[in-house]
Design a protein around this nucleic acid. Structure first.
Lengths: 245, 245
DNA sequence: AGCTCTGGCTTGTTTGTACAAGTTCGCCTA
DNA sequence: TAGGCGAACTTGTACAAACAAGCCAGAGCT
């Protein structure tokens, strides 16, 4: 672990623990540099990390202030339902309801950088939180990863983790579209809600470290079961509104 | 504009223009430093900016790659409906339906850092996109900003901009919770949808540069009208799932 | 042909220095 | 008391240098 990550971790712990309350000032960079025997640049990297997490804010000339005190794991949580659930103290489970190969559609070809007609693997999963069904996942995997996905246990808890352990696949980048939709008849049946009731939809495309698209997915959460949270500042964070599409 | 922002801007333009296609490699830091006659550190700040926007990805040892080519304005868009609409080429309008002072509730006191019983301003707005009602906004302003809000034109297009021009107020930080809910009878009537139909809800708390809370709001979008979008990488971005609350 | 290994390239981390720009707060004055 | 001024403090920007760590392609070997 890099020095600046250690310092960031130390400061984050102090904030989460309540040593610095919300609205309070953080020590100056110079003071932190002295305390940790590090160069000012290193301290700046540490606090930049906290700023990106939304825990602290900063303005030129004034001391940094504490904006929040909740820790967030950010990336992994957004990609792996199981990892998120575990970190929140829930018990996650899941079932593959169907899994079949088929040629990709034109729109899938674009999103997964495939040639029209290339084969993809279409998987439908139902995921539960403490036994309650909360999420219907319709995922389309690119053909080159399909064999590894088909080898997975149908009741596999964390797909992300299994794929990492079996073929070393790492999900590195993702784009996510979030909106609300009415439950279709299949959604309704699987989630145990009425048809037409509100669902929170997350559509995503995930790629490897090399920028190679792995999967695109349409995930639908039962209303009330899950909330997305984001902290942002004038400086950063690419969460944007888009016109309906 | 800082040197690193100029460099970032230049590279971003090149990416958006298509000089570097998705999946392509960016020039090395050394080469960019030479091209722009800047230190390597300055170039690193520039590409870090692009990485935070989700435009490029990077791994130690390998050249940086282009992940996306769409420009996003991020923060302002998430806070100002009008500014977002304008940048997307829509015509935004809005109407204040009710506005009244009242003592704050206990939960509002916590979120806005007020004393229990302090006065707040409760405003209900309906916002339209090209004439179509798409958003019901229920905003609670802290007492100290209430006078400035009450002076606003009831049909004011951009509250954010007006408050900046009239009292120099800048929204600097925000926390946002995004989920799906069913339309209540008032929501349904205002948005012209059936009761119980799905809405995308964004609850937010906004603070000034000094970390002083200004407003908290419950915004509900008609399904299909608006989508939130986020790019993330293993390195960054604080969009997280939360258990329903 | 297929494999390993190595050397060069590229990004990541850290330190040090200098100056610019904005904030804060106390002091002084009107 | 109210306001203005300025000095000290704090964060932002930029440059330079050095080493660590990971990636990749080409050379050489089996």
């Amino acid at each position: 672990m890099a020095r600046y990550e250690q310092i960031a971790s130390d400061l984050r712990d102090a904030i989460v623990r309540g040593d610095y309350r919300i609205g309070a000032q953080l020590p100056s960079e110079a003071e932190l540099a002295l305390r940790y025997s590090a160069a000012r640049g290193t301290v700046r990297q540490a606090v930049a990390l906290l700023a990106a997490e939304g825990l602290v804010g900063s303005r030129q000339g004034a001391r940094r202030i504490v904006l929040g005190s909740e820790r967030s794991q950010s990336f992994a949580e957004l990609h792996s339902f199981a990892q998120w659930a575990r970190s929140m103290g829930y018990r996650a489970s899941g079932t593959v309801l169907s899994s079949q190969r088929r040629p990709c559609s034109p729109s899938e070809a674009v999103r997964l950088s495939l040639e029209p007609g290339d084969e993809v693997l279409d998987v439908l999963r139902l995921r539960r939180l403490d036994g309650e069904p909360v999420l219907v996942e319709r995922t389309v995997y690119a053909g080159w990863i399909a064999p590894a996905v088909e080898r997975l246990d149908p009741h596999c808890e964390s797909v992300t983790q299994e794929l990492y352990e079996s073929v070393g696949l790492v999900f590195a980048y993702g784009e996510h579209l979030i909106d609300a939709v009415a439950a279709g008849s299949e959604d309704a049946r699987l989630l145990g809600v009425r048809r037409g009731s509100p669902l929170l939809r997350q559509r995503r495309v995930t790629t490897t470290q090399e920028g190679r698209p792995v999967e695109c997915s349409d995930d639908r959460y039962r209303a009330g079961s899950v909330t997305f949270s984001i902290r942002n500042s004038t400086a950063a964070n690419p969460l944007v509104r888009r016109a309906g599409d």
